[in-house]
Design a protein around this nucleic acid. Structure first.
Lengths: 121, 121
DNA sequence: TGCAGTGTACTAGATCACTATAACAGTAAA
DNA sequence: TTTACTGTTATAGTGATCTAGTACACTGCA
């Protein structure tokens, strides 16, 4: 996996896992890759994955059974979407609007954006 | 100034200065605060400001006269807007759209966004 | 019981961003 | 010339993050 240096690696991995959960790649109740396996896949140290998993566990997105592995909780998808929506409306959307105004983008330039957003249900 | 820990401080200061330039707070050809003064205002070390200024100089947004200070270049506002537009269309907008789709936001939830964007000329 | 795979914990070290501090050099103006 | 600004450079130290490596404990299964 490639990482931006604008954010902690463990946070990026957490985001990545969360997206796999809400996209269905990691279904509810399923076991996610072990700390060591994930570390190998991501190309990072297993301690870094450990930190990621502990964070996600603290947020009740995964839970673990010692000696067995980590599992996606039943409430995970709902929690992730909820947390992300809050973040989206509190920060990302206002910042996005601020950018548009600061750059003084025209309706013409924004047309592709509208086209994409209008595809939403 | 408050800083997010998601990005280097020097980069956030550079962004801040760029916004002051395109908003007109730092007009073309004007002298911007000295390294030490800016450091005091921002509450950081002057080496950090030095790094910021060197970056901005590398991008031809400011230039300097040793012993006198740093000045906004004539082409600065245009360059900043151009660089930011490129960045916006290459990364921020696609990422924003990706988020909207991932969170499966409804037209209803997006209405405030449309309202804001339609205010653009 | 033994083994393989799992989580967990610990120490040590590398790297990076930023800070703290100092010293040096150019410019303008009194 | 002196003073008070400027930029510039250098060294050392701190804190956070991530890596490297090791060791230990738990679980399921052959």
């Amino acid at each position: 996996m490639e990482f931006k240096d604008s954010k902690g690696i463990f946070q990026q991995i957490a985001d990545n896992i969360c997206e796999k959960i809400i996209s269905g790649e990691y279904p509810v109740f399923s076991k996610i890759p072990s700390v060591r396996e994930q570390a190998a896949v991501m190309g990072v140290n297993h301690n870094t994955i450990m930190r990621t998993y502990m964070e996600l566990q603290r947020e009740n997105i995964i839970n673990n059974q010692r000696g067995i592995g980590y599992f996606v909780t039943e409430e995970a998808p709902q929690r992730i979407v909820q947390l992300r929506k809050e973040e989206f409306f509190r920060h990302e959307m206002p910042e996005f609007i601020r950018q548009v105004k600061l750059l003084n983008l025209s309706q013409e330039e924004l047309k592709p954006l509208f086209d994409q957003l209008n595809k939403q249900p």
